[in-house]
Computed example of a mutant assay.
Amino acid sequence: MVDVPGPEFEPTPPRVAGGTCPDTECDGWSTPEVTLRSASVRGERHRYYRQPRQDTTRAVVHEGTGTVVFAVADGLSSATAAAVGAAEACQAAVRALYTQLDARQVDHEAVVRQTAESLHRQAAAMAPQSRADDLLATTLIAGTARPGADGIEISLFRVGDSSAWVLDSARGTFHPLFDVKTDGDVVATAVAALPAVPEKLEQRAGTLVAGQVLLVGTDGFGDPLGDGDGQVGALFAEHLAAPPSPLWLAHLLDFSRETFDDDRTLLALWPRSVSR
């Protein structure tokens, strides 16, 4: 519970139509250089209305370089099979990035194009008469975290309003890597989404060092986080100073707060020098 909680009720099972996935998923592991934790939970609105979780996250390690390849996607509520779209986008993006690492040449724009093509193929297989945008529209944020001489070199891109932050563990502050989706008090309503390919792709790069944590999440996490100065920011700054268990991250992410009832997904990466 954070501040005023939402209503209490027993979640209902999601309908099979539109894709299926567990209410909650979590994962966690370490390489010699980084520790990863991730979790994705169904929002209260979807639990109440028998809708599936429409967020997904995936992460793998590229064996040749020790690079973590990751993706987070948030299927649009307007898409009839949003859960399928998010899952397909994550799998396609991770697969494309992994293959590029094999070839030692990473091209984010090519990853976006290949992911969009995968969504079109998936839509054609599911419902040949339907538009892929209507069936599988999804946001996507994906990238790599490669061990380097000065820290973990991160490189990522996004389509839509999912985002990423660097948490300064010592100060408990969150530094957004992408522009926030609000402009003053006006919230943007138009969300860029795959399989539409943007003319200009948002991309960021940097180095993650000891005392910092990379956070990649959907707007179900980003909206209540805000600028990180409130109660949600304080909660996650305290519990993510060091890697929690995967189950505890899922528990944290499933906090109850009035009006914030969307699916929530968060992937976090710590340099191993700060793991304990």
Rank of each mutant, 00 (worst) to 15 (best):
L135F: 10
V106K: 02
H120K: 06
V2F: 01
D179I: 01
P243V: 04
R276E: 05
R272F: 00
T182M: 15
V4K: 08
A124W: 03
V84D: 14
Q212H: 13
V60A: 13
G206K: 02
A137V: 05
V112R: 00
C26R: 02
V159L: 00
A237M: 11
E8K: 02
Y49H: 15
A82S: 15
T207P: 05
C90T: 11
H108P: 09
S275Q: 11
L167H: 04
F178E: 06
L214D: 12
A125S: 15
A164M: 04
P52L: 04
H175V: 09
A242W: 07
A89P: 01
T265L: 11
A234D: 14
G217K: 05
R272K: 06
G217M: 06
G43A: 09
D229C: 12
Q100M: 14
Y98W: 12
A39Q: 07
M1I: 03
W29L: 07
V61P: 06
H108G: 12
A250N: 06
A73P: 13
F236L: 06
T259H: 08
P176Y: 05
Q100G: 03
E63G: 14
D227I: 00
E25D: 07
L97V: 00
T182D: 13
Q129Y: 11
S163E: 08
Q114Y: 04
A96T: 14
W29M: 03
L140Q: 09
D161C: 00
A71G: 02
L252E: 08
A188V: 12
F255S: 00
T24R: 10
A242M: 06
C21K: 02
V60Y: 02
V68Q: 06
Q100E: 04
L135A: 09
D229F: 11
F70E: 13
T31N: 07
S162T: 08
V41W: 07
L247Q: 14
T24K: 11
G85V: 02
R171I: 06
P14M: 00
K181I: 11
G222P: 10
V16N: 00
P224Y: 12
A96G: 05
D23R: 12
V112I: 09
T144M: 03
V197K: 13
V72T: 13
V68S: 04
T218G: 14
A79M: 10
A83D: 13
A125N: 13
L249C: 05
L101T: 01
G206R: 00
A83G: 07
V213F: 15
L140I: 07
R204N: 08
T218L: 06
D254V: 08
L194N: 06
Q105I: 01
D179Y: 07
T20Q: 12
R58M: 14
E109M: 02
P22V: 08
R257K: 12
G66L: 08
T80R: 04
Y98T: 15
D133E: 15
V197C: 11
M1W: 05
D183Y: 15
D262S: 03
T189A: 07
A110D: 01
A103L: 13
T138Y: 07
D55L: 02
E109S: 11
L140V: 05
A59F: 15
V60I: 15
V34E: 10
C90N: 14
A142G: 10
V60H: 01
Q100I: 00
E44Q: 14
V112H: 01
